[in-house]
Amino acid sequence: MEVIAIQKSALDGMKNELKELLEITKSATEKYASIFNKEKWLDNQEVCLMMKITKRTLQTYKDKGILSNSRLNRKNYYKLSDVKTLLEAGQPYNTDTDGFNN
């Protein structure tokens, strides 16, 4: 076991810096915590599996405004409630290339 001796004032300074860093981290994450705690978010793969659609169909849903998404660190996320709403509607959207809903 190695023992390192430092002055009490240096130790107190490090403690204070750590406390400040913890406070900064808490304040930075507090404003986003309510967003993620209230709603479950899904990524592309989870949405495709849940809806039984391809990634291309999911992209079409996004392009046509059928399913909204949010981006975080270049990754798309979807609200579970939005996906459930679309599923309950029976996916009435035909995404054929002609652009018309059938």
Rank of each mutant, 00 (worst) to 15 (best):
T29C: 12
M51Q: 05
K55W: 15
F36Y: 15
K84R: 13
K75Q: 04
A10R: 14
K62G: 09
E17M: 09
S81G: 03
L86Q: 01
A5N: 14
M51R: 07
I53N: 04
D63N: 11
S81N: 10
I66M: 03
I24R: 14
L86A: 02
D98H: 02
K31G: 02
D63M: 05
E17W: 04
L21H: 13
E23C: 10
E46H: 01
L72A: 07
A10T: 11
E23S: 06
T54M: 10
E88F: 08
S27W: 14
D96Q: 15
K15A: 11
K52S: 07
L80S: 00
F100D: 12
I35T: 14
Q45H: 07
E30Y: 12
M50E: 07
L22T: 08
N101S: 12
T25N: 13
A28M: 08
G99P: 09
R56N: 13
I6N: 05
F100T: 04
T57Y: 03
S9F: 05
K19G: 01
E23Y: 11
Y61T: 06
I4T: 09
E39Q: 09
N16W: 03
D12H: 01
T95Y: 06
T57V: 13
K40Y: 12
N94A: 03
G13A: 15
P92L: 03
D43W: 12
T60I: 03
W41Y: 14
A10N: 14
L67Q: 01
E17C: 00
I24Y: 09
K84F: 02
S34M: 03
A5K: 11
I6Q: 11
L18C: 05
S70I: 10
N16L: 04
K55N: 13
A33I: 10
T25V: 09
S34A: 10
D43G: 14
A89E: 04
M50C: 14
F100H: 07
Y93I: 10
V83D: 01
A28L: 12
I35V: 14
F100A: 04
S81M: 01
L72H: 03
Q59T: 13
N37T: 13
C48S: 08
Q7M: 09
K40C: 03
L22N: 13
M1H: 11
